[in-house]
Simulated scan of single mutants.
Amino acid sequence: MDVTLHLAQEPEADRLLGRSPLAALVGMLLDQQIPMEWAFTGPYTIAQRLNVDDLDAHEIAAYDPEAFAALLSAKPAVHRYPGSMAGRVQQLCQYLVEHYDGRADAVWEGVDSGAELLRRLNELPGFGEQKARIFLALLGKQLGVDPPGWREAAGAYGDAGSYRSVADIKGPESLAKVRAHKQEMKAAAKAAKPAARKPRK
């Protein structure tokens, strides 16, 4: 895996995401309740604080939990909730060590269908259905992992020419389009909520 990504919007962090399957997975895991760029810069920040060029699932899985939480909590923090996310990153790495010999790319290596890939991603700690579909779309659209049926398995995130998620971001212009789409979705969801009823006197 050696591609150019533009998710962190920071060259060194993006280079790590493009060459390291584990960094890409960890970035996707961190991508919740914080801006996307902050989340996808996280793997690079972790690597710097571990004083390594790439993340290693075995090392992170075996790291002392309190020390790892402190590592992510040091300012600037890797996440808005660095303590809980440190635990999730370690759980993900422990799962990879147990099931894939610590190799993140083994999650998608040799899969024969999009449905199988979605199943594997869904099994990862911290990956719900939506996160699994978005990462599947990222694999298919930008990382060259495109087993038969991957677009169908990714759902709307797999649509060609869409601007729904990180899978569609390839630079500032597409980032702006994805942001605009998310704002539209938030506004639509807010408008769909029934107005709160006033209490009866």
Rank of each mutant, 00 (worst) to 15 (best):
L17Q: 04
L29G: 09
L138W: 13
Y163S: 00
K177Y: 00
D105V: 03
Y157A: 11
A86N: 06
D54Q: 08
L138G: 07
G18L: 08
A192S: 15
R120S: 10
G161R: 10
A23E: 13
C93Y: 03
D112T: 15
A23Y: 12
Q48G: 07
I46S: 04
G155A: 13
L7M: 04
A137G: 00
Y95K: 07
M85C: 13
M185F: 13
L117Y: 02
Y63R: 13
D14V: 11
Y44P: 04
T41M: 13
R119I: 02
A191C: 03
A176W: 02
A39I: 04
L5K: 08
L121S: 02
P76R: 15
N51P: 01
A115W: 08
L175E: 06
Q90L: 11
D54H: 08
L139Q: 01
G42S: 06
A104P: 10
V97H: 08
E10Q: 15
D146Y: 05
P65F: 08
H181P: 00
A156T: 13
L50S: 08
L117V: 04
K198F: 02
H58I: 07
Q130F: 14
S165M: 06
G42E: 05
Q94M: 11
D14F: 10
S165E: 01
K75D: 13
K177D: 01
A195K: 14
P125A: 10
V52M: 09
A24N: 11
F127L: 07
L121V: 04
Y44G: 07
G110E: 03
D105R: 06
H6D: 09
G161I: 06
A62D: 11
R197G: 07
M185N: 09
L17V: 04
A191V: 02
R133G: 03
V78S: 15
A167P: 01
G161P: 07
A137V: 00
P11H: 10
G102W: 02
S73T: 15
E10K: 15
G158E: 03
R19Q: 11
L55Q: 06
V178Q: 01
Q94H: 07
T4N: 12
P172A: 02
P148G: 00
E37Q: 06
A188L: 14
L117A: 06
P21I: 01
E152N: 05
Y81I: 00
Q130T: 15
L25P: 10
V166H: 12
A70H: 15
V107T: 04
E173L: 01
V3N: 04
K186P: 00
D56F: 09
H6S: 09
G83I: 09
P172T: 00
G42M: 04
K170M: 04
K198R: 12
C93Q: 03
Q90P: 14
A74V: 14
H79K: 07
G144D: 05
L7Y: 12
R151G: 02
